[in-house]
């Protein structure tokens, strides 16, 4: 029996939403349960749907990714969050991401293999946790 990894993607760019959606669509046992275009929408969606994985941009309008991460980390601690950063994975904002609870920071432009590896690892961890 397989277990499905439920993902929410958060980015104000339609290009990135399409890019990540295309990648997830050809990995087995992965379902995108929602997308959001800013931090405020992300907080609502993640706390309501409690996905296994959130892929979230840092620079966004209304509420940025770091502010949303701070709320999600306490409101939905079971959801694991990977931040997607246009400012590089070694920037101080990336350090802040880890401090606020992200388990990984991915730099842009997105490396498809890095995302694929991350999702497959998360799927594997989920199966181990659930004893599948």
């Amino acid at each position: 029996m397989s277990k499905t990894l439920r993902i929410i993607i958060v980015d104000d760019s339609k290009t990135i939403l399409a890019q990540l959606g295309a990648l997830c669509s050809h990995i087995d046992d992965v379902e995108i349960v929602g997308t959001a275009v800013d931090g405020a929408e992300a907080v609502k969606l993640v706390t309501a749907l409690k996905p296994h994985l959130v892929l979230m941009d840092i620079v966004m309008p209304n509420m940025d990714g770091l502010s949303a991460l701070r709320i999600i980390s306490s409101a939905a601690p079971e959801s694991r969050v990977a931040m997607i950063s246009s400012v590089g994975s070694l920037n101080s904002r990336s350090e802040e991401s880890f401090r606020l609870g992200a388990f990984q920071v991915i730099g842009k432009p997105i490396d498809p293999e890095q995302i694929e590896e991350l999702i497959i690892n998360e799927l594997e961890s989920l199966r181990q946790r659930e004893g599948v």
Binding site: D12, S13, K14, T15, I16, V59, M60, P61, S85, S86, V87, G88, L90, N91, S92, K108, P109
Partner: peptide, 30 residues
């Protein structure tokens, strides 16, 4: 438009990385 906006994000973000090495602090808006 969205696509070149995303490209600019990456361009400005990469520049921010370089500036941070020179202790110049800036932030980026969408």
């Amino acid at each position: 438009d969205d696509c070149i906006g995303e490209f600019l994000n990456i361009l400005a973000g990469s520049a921010m990385d370089e500036l941070e090495k020179q202790a110049i602090t800036v932030c980026l808006e969408p």
